[in-house]
Design a protein around this nucleic acid. Structure first.
Lengths: 166, 166, 166, 166
DNA sequence: GATGAATGAGAATTCATTCAT
DNA sequence: AATGAATGAATTCTCATTCAT
């Protein structure tokens, strides 16, 4: 309740519904389960993220695209633990509907990583799982900090520099 | 144990009690509240961590102590979101009993950070809040990875290198 | 039904709910707390009682109204200890919602008592607190007796005669 | 908690035991059940009351003894609902151990009542059940009042006068 | 199709009773 | 024999889900 934004997971269905401008009944007419709703939200986010990622990859050179994307995903997933959890859950226990979007965005990230590594901008030994873990970790670090941009940039500095080859 | 770490916060009191080899009643005889139990656990951990941190600071040079401590705290707080949350909650809304240990360990970390910075081993512009945020983030990154040490070391490489001055 | 009157206070919420033809959830949807439910019931009863008392006062002479009201309140509060407790709790620790109805019915009773005393039908030295205490006591006496009207009337005889001036 | 004295019935066993200067274990060594303890206390009280009642009957004339006894029982049972409940429970559902003392004190009260009635001091139509009910009721009335003796005496005046024959 | 009242399984907490010391 | 820590059934309250309107 202090530095942590609202957790929609902890909000009860009625509150979620009201926040969305409807009643509980409506919510459950559209989604069989509260979990299903959250899943749908996740799917949407993952897809949006995949699209933005794709755009970045098309618009910039490999290195720039990689770092821009890192920044993008991190900012987007601050306060959304589930998001990065979903991201990292490769093919494990994820709910079926998340499989597709997860795979897609993982694919995009893999391409960006590979591109940046080939361009010599990122340590070559880093694998996709480590990259995703770093996304989650950086996002988590941001959560600890307030809205002030200066400390946030310092975190990015550390991570960006750390990612560069020695 | 690695993919889905124990969530003592989500576990109900009965389960916690049974896991500890007792009944619910026993649990509530010792702690007035489920929250109080969690608080007590946190206090213990924070104190243990403070002690270990102090020992590291005494046994090694500033730079080595700093990095060893980073490693220590990170490993210790994997899967324990509350831990790093407590750590970062300076004097905010923390429950009274957490105040002391939190302040102590923050003090230790501040000393280590300052020492490492004076020794030229860590970027001088990094403040304590950013350092703590990085602890939380690195720990979170570790959670995403399995038990295999190789990827974990790569994460440490990134963070350690990123922390060094340019 | 006469020896052991229903104790809704001791009944657990689930039983109360089922007795009312619903589930626990429904009960707690309407009243935030078990105590709040009981309070609401009390408010209703006190208000109904105040209304009946007012009617009696309007329809009969002071003495008749007084004794009729005594009879009414007593019969109404048999088996309902909380009722007379509420009645006697002037402005003490009563929950806010009981304040109004309590004051109202106390006012009615005070008027009736004063009227009967001015008409010379009731001992002049008797104060409102004693009157209310007698209501509670008479009601309690009734609880001890069964449904048979003869002993009950004997109790009323004692109390009514005792109330008259010497 | 305001005008009502402590209810040992609502106190938990541990508190009762500590108040008695021992531990819970000791309590349950002596009484198989919390209820059994309360029963034993009741038995003691009833017996003491029976003895005092007998003494009163021996020391004073029938009328005086009757009224003195009424006063005695009433004062003694203020705040002890269970007491008068036990008293009135003739042979019904009472626990076995209460049977004897209850019968004894009821016998004493019956004698006193009969004596006072023969002496012309009490309405002849009043039966033992009504008398006991009046004891309970008067005691209840006293509970509503504070410690101030004046109102209490007024209650006694009403009841005593009401008991006299017309 | 949308709404929100009703429902009951589940969670935290209390307390009579047991048992090892 | 006395003690108090341990135990789990019972109680209040929450919340996902259903259903009548």
């Amino acid at each position: 309740m202090s530095g942590t934004p609202e957790r929609p997971l902890r909000a009860d269905a009625a509150r979620i519904a009201r926040a969305a401008g409807g009643g509980v009944g409506t919510l459950f007419r559209h989604f069989p389960t509260k979990e299903a709703l959250l899943e749908a939200v996740m799917v949407r986010r993952l897809e949006a993220m995949a699209a933005q990622t794709a755009r970045l990859a098309a618009e910039a050179g490999p290195a720039d695209a990689f770092f821009a994307c890192l920044r993008l995903v991190v900012e987007e997933s601050v306060g959304r633990n589930e998001f990065t959890q979903a991201l990292s859950a490769a093919g494990r226990d994820v709910h079926a509907s998340l499989q597709g979007p997860t795979m897609e965005i993982q694919g995009r990230l893999a391409e960006l990583l590979a591109g940046a590594q080939q361009a010599g901008a990122v340590r070559p030994e880093l694998g996709l799982p480590e990259f995703i873990a770093l996304l989650a970790g950086t996002s988590r670090a941001m959560e600890q900090l307030g809205a002030d941009p200066t400390p946030r940039e310092r975190i990015f500095d550390v991570v960006f520099d750390g990612l560069r080859p020695r």
